[in-house]
């Protein structure tokens, strides 16, 4: 009697568990069947009326039904939980093409970028990076570089003179003087920095621009060494083999002095507007350090020799990025600067 009741209860409960459509319906089944006052609890109570010889068997049946129903309930609950999780996750759909939050990373100035790139290159070649002030003494900017007062070479650079007799450095070369005093021979140094020329500003002229001075002093430095150094440097800067040529150039702080030209990278030397149809682009002045400069730097030119060069960072930046108006670099215009 009780056994039949149990069987029918279990069957109907099993049916209801499977049929339940919501966690609430399932919960109702749990309460009605497995709850403290539920049907199975009632049957356990009724066990008292079962003849003793049947009790063990029916008890076993009762436990089995309980276990089975609990498992069925849990499995159905898991199904509901999985469905709920799935529904939640689905509802949490995001449009991944929307923009990132937080500030967009800022751009470094193109001159900073190239300057850092070159500093790293030179550091890897064992070359020190030195600094010099923007305001220089006339002595460091001219005299110590073998440009005495009234030397016509002073006209080569239109100088901003200050009311106290100092000047804004017209080149990074005064750092050679500082470098020799600071490091002593042998030395390898570069000095990137801001320089000034007293000029009207137009798309290709600026009164404020950037140079990178380089100097190496050691025993028996030759033009061949300088050429090697320049070629290595340029290969890295342009990312390809470049053809260079040296031609005479006059700078009082070097002897001999050169202009280093590179074969035009746009036309390969056949002639185009960039190289003014000459096939070559003037890139940097360089030369063997003048013995007077070494001497004024406290270095004995009979013992030591060296080369020096001045790379136009601003020019290089303009070439690298195809910038046709030099004024953009100091315009502070974010429409320009954010491109880097």
């Amino acid at each position: 009697m009780l056994e039949a009741q149990l069987q029918s209860l279990a069957a109907s409960a099993r049916q209801r568990i499977l049929a339940s459509a919501t966690p609430e319906q399932l919960q109702a089944v749990r309460v009605e069947v497995l709850g403290r006052k539920g049907a199975l609890a009632q049957i356990s109570k009724d066990m008292a009326n079962v003849p003793p010889q049947d009790r063990a068997r029916i008890g076993k049946l009762l436990n089995a039904a309980k276990t089975e129903l609990e498992a069925a309930l849990e499995s159905r609950e898991n199904e509901f939980a999985a469905q709920a999780l799935h529904a939640r996750l689905d509802s949490e759909w995001l449009d991944v093409t929307l923009p990132a939050t937080g500030p967009r990373p800022g751009a470094l100035h193109p001159i900073t970028r190239i300057q850092q790139e070159l500093e790293e290159l030179f550091l890897s070649m064992g070359v020190a990076v030195l600094d010099g002030p923007e305001v220089e003494s006339e002595y460091n900017n001219f005299d110590a570089l073998n440009i005495p007062p009234d030397h016509p070479a002073r006209d080569m650079q239109d100088t901003f003179w200050l009311t106290d007799g100092c000047c804004l450095r017209t080149h990074t070369s005064p750092v050679q003087v500082r470098g020799m005093a600071k490091l002593g021979p042998p030395l390898r140094m570069i000095a990137p920095g801001r320089v000034f020329r007293n000029e009207e500003v137009d798309p290709s002229h600026e009164h404020t621009f950037y140079q990178l001075e380089g100097m190496m002093v050691d025993r028996n430095i030759s033009i061949a060494h300088m050429l090697y150094f320049m070629k290595t440097l340029l290969r890295r800067i342009f990312g390809c083999e470049v053809t260079v040529r040296l031609r005479p150039g006059y700078f009082p702080f070097v002897e001999p002095g050169f202009e280093l030209d590179i074969q035009c990278l746009i036309c390969g030397g056949s002639g185009c507007p960039v190289c003014k149809h000459g096939g070559w682009v003037e890139l940097m002045p360089c030369g063997l350090v003048h013995p007077n400069v070494l001497r004024m730097g406290g270095i004995d030119p009979e013992q030591w020799s060296g080369f020096a060069f001045g790379l136009g960072l601003t020019r290089l930046v303009m070439m690298r990025y195809g910038i046709d108006d030099i004024r953009l670099l100091q315009s502070g215009d974010l429409r320009f600067l954010r491109q880097f």
Partner: peptide, 17 residues
Amino acid sequence: RRITAAQGYDEVYNYSF
């Protein structure tokens, strides 16, 4: 420079004048 740019600041150069 690196830290400031990473915080979203774009670098400008102005004249010394």
